[in-house]
Amino acid sequence: MKQSGYGFLLLLALMLPPVSNLLESIMITHMHMQMPMLVFAGFLMAKFFQKRFPQFFEKWNENGLPGILLFTIIMVYWSLPRTMDEALTMTSVEAFKFFSLPFLAGVPLRDSWRKLSSSWKHALIIFFTVLFLGMGWLYIWSPVQLCNNYLVIEQITLGWGFITTAFAMVVYLVYSYFMDFSKYE
């Protein structure tokens, strides 16, 4: 339960105006640092909800698929350039960001991950790898500025951030494809 407390503290810290202003002032830290940290905060807090409402998760997330679908929808939503812009200009969208990423992405991710079979896990990583490559391609080679709030150079930086993260995921996929853990364990 301690970790749920830490997760809540992390969420509060990320909500502090100076912290959120700093992280949102750079495009790549907004998307690749603040957003994942919000998901991570929810991931930590998930323990609290799992203990408090075990039946809810049992009933609605029996095999992990509904949870991971919700996670994916939320993540894809926040990958759109327009949503980032709106988060910066409309308070209601900003509030939705601070709610949806921890509670609708982080919590279901934690609950679903253990329930998923390894092929589903790999499918998810492959999906995000493809998505990240696509997003990287979009942000780097887009001829126009995609966000009103960020300069083109920041857009290109974010694109390369997507490509490098996708590269790391490819390394992981290749590693787990060629490694036969049963030989070692």
Partner: peptide
């Protein structure tokens, strides 16, 4: 393998911003 992937992600996080800046600008 997992630690190496984490290392690569961390290296990516650290280097993308300055390197893109050095090359594009």
């Amino acid at each position: 393998g997992l630690w190496i992937v984490c290392m690569l992600v961390l290296v990516g996080m650290a280097y993308v911003i300055p390197l893109v800046d050095f090359i594009v600008n």
